[in-house]
């Protein structure tokens, strides 16, 4: 399949990319290309130019000051999955990154491209919503930071404007007594999330002292499962109480919003979502001790 014709410009820096964006208004940023090239090939998008930011080294890599983990937008899924920093302090993120596509896809696809594309069946948006990530965007008016709930606006729609560049993602590092996990009902062929559930649990002596649970895959943009979180906090982290709390997930899902397709209907997804929520919470609770 051939994409429609487009021009190509390579940016050596964020400033140069910004300049190219302003010069070529109908252009798209190209990073790893693993979301963009497929949609160009099926002609869902036909930009007049691509601006390749894939060689801007300042946008790559993971660093931590102990409290906050900074992830450059060009960091690949393979780098997220194998990061010691993330394995310890944002386990759900490295776990989810390791479930994306397959090894060759993970070698090329980037976290920035993934979240800027904001495919509802993607894994990382739910995890980043769960972990309370912040998104640093460079735009014509300077740099701004947007929280996950404002970043993901809807189906394939984010706070990144046409003149903006997502430069990094910041994730709070988990501390003692905290753990996180991601559980996924993967489509058997595409490996995309039919349902994705991310959980971050804080516990003390077997009691849940804090909970964040977010869902992806079955909704246009990631949502927090507030009812599940409320049911968990203050209670024991036993099998029964986690299962009971997880069953509250369906109540928080708006019927008009739940996605369905030929593989899994909206009703089916809504009915079984609690299973993946339970698995994510159980794994996160196990890591919080």
């Amino acid at each position: 399949m051939y994409a429609p014709e487009f021009d190509y410009h390579r940016a050596g820096s964020v400033a140069e990319a910004a300049e190219l964006l302003s010069k070529h208004p109908d252009s798209k940023l190209l990073a790893g290309g693993h979301s963009l090239i497929p949609i160009l090939k099926v002609r869902l998008a036909s930009p007049s130019a691509l601006i390749d930011i894939g060689r801007i080294d300042s946008l790559r890599g993971i660093s931590s000051d102990g409290g906050t983990i900074r992830i450059g937008s060009l960091t690949t899924h393979a780098e997220l999955a194998s990061s010691e920093v993330l394995n310890v302090a944002a386990t759900a993120l490295s776990e989810a990154a390791g479930m994306i596509g397959d090894p060759a896809v993970r070698n090329r696809g980037t976290i920035g491209g993934n979240v800027a594309h904001a495919d509802p069946a993607s894994d990382l948006p739910a995890v980043l919503a769960c972990l309370g990530a912040e998104f640093v965007i460079s735009g014509p008016e300077g740099e701004r930071t947007v929280g996950a709930s404002d970043f993901f606006e809807g189906l394939m729609t984010t706070a990144v404007g046409e003149q903006d560049i997502l430069t990094r993602i910041e994730v709070p590092a988990s501390g003692p007594g905290e753990g996180s996990a991601y559980a996924k009902f993967a489509h058997p062929a595409s490996r995309y999330a039919v349902i994705g559930a991310a959980a971050r649990i804080a516990s003390s002596g077997g009691t849940c002292t804090g909970a964040s649970v977010a869902l992806g895959g079955l909704v246009p943009a990631p949502v927090r499962a507030g009812a599940v979180e409320q049911a968990l906090v203050g209670g024991p982290l036993t099998e029964e109480s986690i299962a009971a709390a997880s069953s509250a997930v369906a109540d928080g899902l708006d019927d008009d919003e739940v996605l369905g397709d030929v593989y899994a209907s909206a009703g089916y997804r809504k009915a079984v979502a609690h299973i993946w929520v339970r698995r994510a919470i159980t794994a996160a609770a196990g890591r919080s001790g």
């Binding site: 190209l30 290309g33 070698n107």
Partner: peptide
């Protein structure tokens, strides 16, 4: 040195 799917990479990349 690392695997990539050549159908999802532009020659210019």
């Amino acid at each position: 040195g690392v695997s990539a799917k050549a159908c999802t990479c532009l020659a210019v990349q």
